[in-house]
Structure formats: C-alpha cells, structure tokens
Write a protein that binds this DNA or RNA. Structure first.
Lengths: 152, 152
DNA sequence: TTTATAGTAACATTCGAAGTTACATGAGTC
DNA sequence: GACTCATGTAACTTCGAATGTTACTATAAA
C-alpha cells in the first residue's frame, strides 16, 4: 500500500452514486470498493465538507450526491480530499549554503512544478458527468459484445 | 522519509564530482550529503552499472566520473537509478468487470501518463554540464554578494 | 426500545525509503 | 605476508504514510 489511491477510490464511489441516485450506506459503498465502511466514511468526510455529497444518519440514511455532476471536476474532488501529494519524488533537504544542492533542487523543482500543474489542469478538464457518460458507453459496448458472443 | 529523494541525492554527489574530479570515497561523499557511506554506495551502484561513474577499491580508491557531463542528462541518471516511481497517486486495483472502475482508471491513467512524460522530457533536457554551469554562476554570485557585504 | 446508520478515535498492518551494522573482498603500503 | 583503506553487499532497524480494523458514540427511523 504505497501509492495513494484515494482519488481513484473516491471517484469510483461518486460515480456509482451518479449512476444510481438512491442513498447508499457506507457498507454498500465499501463492498463496491472492496474495503471497509470506515475507510469509506473517511474518504467521504472531505467531500461532505465541500458540499459534494450529503450524509444522513439512522434508518434509511446513507450517502447521496449533493452536486451537479456536470459542474464538478476531478480537480474539485482532489481538493476536497485535501490535495494529497502528487509526486513520489522530491528534493533532499538543502544543506544551508551548499550551492550544489541549491542548484540541483532548483532545477528539479521546476520540472516537478510543471508536472504537477499539468495534472491539475487535466483534472480540471474532466467532470463527473463526462466520466459517467463514458461509463454508459462502456456498458452499452459490453452489452453489444455479450450479444455477439451469445449469438455467435 | 516518505518521498523518494534518490535522484536529488545522487545528482548532488555527481555534481560535486564534476566540480572536483579527484576520486572521492563513499565516506567523503556521505558527509557532503549528510548521510551514511553505505547509502552512497547503494546510490552509486546503479550509476556504475550504467558507466556513469567508476569505483576503485583499496588504498587511494573511491569514486570518479566516467562520463562527459555535457552528454549525460538527468534522464540518464534517473534511468541508472532504476526509474523509481514518479507519481505518488495511482489507481486502485480494478475489480474485474466493474465499468465504473475501468472508466475512472482510464481517465486518470491518461493524466498520469502525461505528467510522467513531461517529467521525463524535462529530465532529458538538462545535462550535468548545465547544472554545473549554474553552480559556478551561483558561486560567483555569492562571492560578489559577500564582497559587497564586506565593503558596505 | 430496538435497529440501522454515520462519526470518530485509537490501534494494527503493510510497505517502501532511508539509515545502520557486520562482514567479505580487493588493492595498495609497510 | 600482514596491515590498512577502500568498495560490495546482505541483513537488520527505523520511520512515516496509506490503509485497514475495532470499538464506541450519536442520531434517526421503525
């Protein structure tokens, strides 16, 4: 469990919720993600604070979407998760006064910043609605393939 | 110690070696990097296998540059380190047949690939000689500032 | 009152990067 | 040849982050 997969995981949950708007319990969502209900609640907590989802306690409660999928980008979701680190590599701590380290770190930092910026831009271009449409397309595609298989 | 700083660390070492071509022991290099000689040997092992540096055992031995700094890019160094992961975030493992997960992962993977590609391109544009020149500039700059300070 | 749900703190697990120890190997020096 | 200085490397330790788990509280509906 090294790489952070919170974004991937929480998008999975959100899109299941877009596909079916009935309230979902943490238990149900956990099963879809093959994990623990507490993990789900932790992931969703940030989204709730950013008004992307709502939660209801008690009987018949659960999680519901609180946003328009067409207006929410992956960038919004990423922000709601608390902007976890994007890059796995980083500079060593500078030793004060070492020009070599300063030079190396400056050069690397520029590349790092550029890569991060690209990621954030791409995230900002993708909405939940776009992904949802893609899912629909895939489902239709699979249906067609299944028929072909059955008929062939 | 979470983020990988091997590249930053090993560049630090290489550039010290560019600045002063006499053989350096792991002990000496470790001090420059504020770490342990064994860590240095581990970092340098990959570079040696890629013919970027040479090592000599025994009395008077140590590490020497085995390449032309003008012809070696950060990309070469990165490759010699074994191409450690660049991104800190990743997809969750796909559950076979879940179109939602498939769609999310595809979308994210495209952005991930683009960010990684940018990093590698930037690495490929920077040579050790360029960084070395930058260090020289910084050293001169510092000298000038020191003088001003002394005289002012 | 019981049951179903989220909220959350505390703890456990797992993994990878980095640091450390211990010892083997090889190359000069005396 | 014995000694010393170096790298080579396996094995272990330490540390932090992501994730998973347990246990409990609070709340809402039946």
């Amino acid at each position: 469990m090294s790489r952070d997969s919170k974004l991937s995981g929480v998008l999975h949950l959100l899109l299941h919720m877009v596909q079916d708007r009935a309230p979902k319990t943490s238990e149900t969502l956990a099963k879809a993600m093959d994990t623990n209900p507490v993990v789900v609640r932790r992931l969703m907590a940030g989204l709730r604070d950013h008004n992307l989802v709502r939660s209801e306690k008690g009987h018949g409660g659960g999680w519901t979407l609180a946003c328009d999928p067409a207006n929410v980008t992956l960038r919004d979701v990423y922000d709601a998760l608390g902007q976890p680190a994007l890059l796995a590599i980083a500079n060593r701590n500078e030793r004060a006064g070492c020009m070599v380290e300063a030079s190396v770190n400056t050069a690397l930092s520029k590349s790092f910043a550029e890569a991060q910026a690209i990621l954030l831009v791409r995230f900002g271009e993708l909405t939940l609605a776009m992904l949802s449409a893609d899912i629909q397309k895939r489902l239709k595609q699979r249906g067609r393939l299944t028929k072909v298989k059955v008929h062939g």
